[in-house]
Design a protein around this nucleic acid. Sequence first.
DNA 1: GAATAAACCGTGTTCGTTAACGATAAGTTC
DNA 2: GAACTTATCGTTAACGAACACGGTTTATTC
Lengths: 334, 334
Amino acid sequence: MKRITIKEIAQQAQVSVGTVDRVLHNRGEVAAATRSKVLEIAKEGNYQVNVVARNLKLNKVYKLAIVIPQDNEYWKDQKKGMEKALDEYSSFGLKATFYTVNRQVHNGLSEAVDLALKKEPDGMVLAPLEKDNFGLLHALANKVPFVLIDASVQDVKPLATIAQNSFNAGVLAAKLLHFGWQNNRKAIILRTMGTDGLNKTIDERMEGFKSYYDNMGWDRSLVVEKLCAVEQGGMVKPCKLEANNLYFVPNSRANEYVSFFSNTDTYRMVGFDLTNSNHFQLKKDSIDFIIDQAPEEQGYLSIQCFYKYWISKVEIEPIHEMPLQIFTKENLQG
Amino acid sequence: MKRITIKEIAQQAQVSVGTVDRVLHNRGEVAAATRSKVLEIAKEGNYQVNVVARNLKLNKVYKLAIVIPQDNEYWKDQKKGMEKALDEYSSFGLKATFYTVNRQVHNGLSEAVDLALKKEPDGMVLAPLEKDNFGLLHALANKVPFVLIDASVQDVKPLATIAQNSFNAGVLAAKLLHFGWQNNRKAIILRTMGTDGLNKTIDERMEGFKSYYDNMGWDRSLVVEKLCAVEQGGMVKPCKLEANNLYFVPNSRANEYVSFFSNTDTYRMVGFDLTNSNHFQLKKDSIDFIIDQAPEEQGYLSIQCFYKYWISKVEIEPIHEMPLQIFTKENLQG
DNA sequence: GAATAAACCGTGTTCGTTAACGATAAGTTC
DNA sequence: GAACTTATCGTTAACGAACACGGTTTATTC
């Protein structure tokens, strides 16, 4: 359908574009009769703002602050998606600055946010990885519009939340781990010492995992948690893993545990995040399933939110639940 | 990084914007010295065209012809994604007309394409569902840029192809069907009489499925094809299905077969496309896995291709292989 | 040396929208 | 009736890029 312009509206209504603009933007100072006449013609002619013209005129620069952890592979992919979007939208004046969160300290996120706020950004993208971020985010809400990625926070109203449902992810992991096998098999959750403890996503996945047993009427004592140490190099310290069992790795390190088995061992393992290492082990069939969070897409979407909010002024889905993407040897790409 | 404008380039180079424009667009008529000076400053200042300004000036209308089958659920979702994109890009002058392919006749696609071409579109999106479309598409290539969705065609160079690898999808189906069970179980491919025969995607899925047996060193005779009739209403005609077997439904009708089992039967079933009916049966655990093609996203991406091609003039990935998305009871949304 | 061609470059307009700035007329106050 | 206020509306200059058009040099030809 053809779209009318304000110039055409002005002609038809016998007024100037200035008046049409005042009507369309409720800037007041317009006689009721004129107003309704303009609105009538606008509706008749299917008027929609020309996003291109508006943004050329406004020619604004929107400063975005992006607050994410230091680069592991997952966050590199997130960043990659963001940069792709930023590049695509660069003509619209979207500019971003990245701020790094130190995950080793308790208030790492808070510190990074404070630093970012000093530059007075127009918007913020951040990942609420730690627990108890309600206060921080509640305070933030009055200062700047923000988008949450990777995890959600209760009772906070961001522009949008882009994340997976970690609880459901845990449930899914349990299903995949047990699928087709007898039910009374022992399942072992492999946790990693250190940052895992601060990360609520891991907790939620484990809760979901265990809830599967409740729903199936199985005994929760079938599930055992094993906490593994980390060596100097950052890799998991070798330990003994029993064959014929089910292994659930609620973080992205499934690939590190694979080498602790001998070649003849049979086991089943489900992990998270399609990192290169996990990809490699999946391809070798050493990991059975990986549940991926599509980090690159998350990153892209987070920036797109602000494009929609500032530029195209389209409605934003407040909660974008990322699908629980299942990968196995046969549906890897590349 | 800040971006310089042609006006600023003109100032710095002591020439007019007209000259700068001639240099940047290789429109000739510029002295070599001036030319290199302008290019120097442009590079220095990180010049990139302002997409917004360019398209406002050009103010073109791009006519897109979209040629897809009549609305079943899968194509409705494709269309939904397209319309979302068309809406988003409407300010940039993207307009589309939909043309319906009659799948009942052999040259349905060709007829629809001819009809579409009469309106002299600037681009085309089409789904090469039938076999042997090489001639049609080869001829089309000289007339108008086009994007293929849902399936690919060998030796044809579209702007982009957006589709799943159906062969791999079949392989994945076989894996999921056998996962965790003993290997010597009989597998039954449930085919539907009628349109399936014309659809190459179905064939490719079946080939992939069978190739899994070869790769595993299993006997192909474990796989049996069963061709099922369709009733007046369009639903599959009830037939007897054996319990304790594996069922592969290479089209989207898995849900229709479910009712042919009794409540006490155990079986495993893998099908395609997360339609409402399949969603329902997955939720009831009557289907084990559905491999989805993300039709809405495919539709969205097909339109986005032309936005990239005409408007933002960004490079286009010539082959966009849609991920093989696995759905099971536990990762359904909504 | 005058005419003509060729090479080179600036000007002006356009796209649709925004919003500051005036302009006008009618009404109000002393 | 002079001085203001208020309500209402028009005018205009951007924003950055594209390109037609015309203008000004320089080179070439007879």
